Amino acid sequence: MDRRSFLRTSALGGTAAAAASTLAAPAYAQGKRTLTFVTTWGRGLAGVHDAVMYYADNVTAMTDGQLIIDVKAAGELVGAFEVFDAVTSGQADMYHGADYYFVGQHPGYGFFTAVPFGMTAQEIVNWYYQDGGKELHDELGQIFGLKSFLAGNTGAQSGGWFAKEIKGPEDFVGLKFRMPGLGGKALGKLGASVQNLPGSEVYQALASGAIDGTEWIGPWADEKAGFQEITKIYYTAGFHEPGAALSVAFNRDVFDSLTPAQQKICEEAAAAAHQWNLSLFLANNSAALVHDENLGDPLYKKIYDSAMASMKKSSAWIKLSDGAYTRQRDRVLGG
């Protein structure tokens, strides 16, 4: 008997099952259906919450408004790490998150986000769409009554922010460090005290000294989170998440109740969200890294802002005046 069947037939049914079925009742209004979409992300978290909204908006648009996705950020309906149970129980219809948060449910979930020294962003989509990964994601989801799709990717993640420089493996002993998934388990083997905190709680934990360091995502999302305000020690290469995928997962009964067209829209919107989200992170990381390296210097920021503003003001004319010249110069000189 799989977990889904067990939950249906358990002696714990009774009042609890009745309450769950009430929560799971789909909301319909004038032929439209509202799906409750919980997430592991705080509202507005750069990149990850953007993926949620991109997916939700596309599903609603492509179904001509027949499916309305009601987004609940972490803490608005359930906590960040409670979304898995909320969807499997029927309290919510679907979730968006990093599936490696749920390796306690099954260690296989780690591979659908990232594992240490694992796949890059391109490699994970190759596996997912061409070498059986998608089918395995579905097989894993069946155990828990879920229908899952990749729906985001951060690209390669950074090593993280530290209160003190790391000079050797011994520096991890006793270090209170936030790192989820199998990467955190690896640091635990080195003696670190690994913390698994939702993204919306990391800044305060780092600022208060509750943790000595954290990884989050990469330069752009980290800058938006404000970690550079707390510590200046930042390692840009991480072993733990070389291409971290994000997922959307439906309660399987909810997904099965959708029309075939709606099911396909939900699936294809997830694939689009994956590629769009990856491009969002990669397009913003380089500029943010330059900021992060120099934000401690107020004069640098003043110079940078002035130069960028001037460049934007001048660029329209320069493209016309200098462009023709430099193209011919390069042709003549062989540049």
Rank of each mutant, 00 (worst) to 15 (best):
83 V>L: 01
138 D>A: 14
97 G>K: 15
171 D>W: 06
152 G>S: 13
120 T>Q: 02
78 V>N: 10
82 E>F: 04
87 V>G: 09
114 A>C: 12
156 A>Q: 13
83 V>Q: 07
102 F>G: 06
102 F>V: 01
145 G>F: 09
135 E>N: 05
74 A>V: 02
115 V>P: 05
138 D>Q: 14
105 Q>V: 13
122 Q>H: 06
93 D>R: 08
160 G>H: 06
99 D>G: 10
87 V>E: 06
110 G>K: 03
141 G>W: 10
151 A>R: 07
122 Q>A: 15
136 L>V: 00
109 Y>L: 15
131 D>S: 07
103 V>I: 14
155 G>Q: 13
107 P>V: 08
112 F>M: 11
116 P>H: 11
153 N>P: 11
127 W>E: 10
130 Q>T: 13
91 Q>P: 03
65 G>V: 04
169 P>T: 04
72 K>D: 04
96 H>V: 04
116 P>I: 00
66 Q>W: 00
153 N>T: 12
115 V>Q: 08
168 G>M: 00
131 D>T: 09
175 L>K: 03
144 F>C: 06
126 N>V: 02
89 S>A: 11
79 G>A: 06
148 S>M: 15
105 Q>R: 14
128 Y>T: 04
70 D>G: 09
101 Y>P: 02
141 G>V: 05
159 G>C: 03
137 H>R: 12
169 P>A: 11
126 N>C: 07
90 G>F: 02
158 S>A: 14
100 Y>M: 14
67 L>P: 07
108 G>P: 05
173 V>A: 09
93 D>P: 15
139 E>N: 13
95 Y>H: 14
173 V>H: 08
69 I>N: 02
145 G>A: 01
128 Y>G: 02
99 D>E: 13
127 W>G: 12
169 P>H: 07
173 V>T: 12
137 H>G: 07
120 T>N: 05
151 A>P: 03
103 V>S: 13
86 A>E: 15
171 D>F: 04
175 L>A: 00
142 Q>C: 14
152 G>L: 13
135 E>Q: 12
130 Q>R: 11
146 L>T: 03
94 M>V: 07
170 E>S: 12
82 E>R: 15
168 G>N: 08
116 P>N: 06
167 K>R: 08
173 V>I: 11
144 F>S: 12
109 Y>Q: 06
163 A>H: 08
97 G>C: 05
165 E>I: 05
125 V>K: 05
105 Q>D: 13
87 V>D: 07
158 S>H: 12
100 Y>Q: 11
78 V>G: 08
139 E>P: 09
102 F>L: 09
149 F>V: 06
120 T>M: 01
65 G>F: 10
172 F>D: 08
77 L>F: 08
84 F>V: 06
118 G>F: 11
164 K>M: 03
171 D>G: 07
91 Q>W: 04
66 Q>A: 04
72 K>G: 01
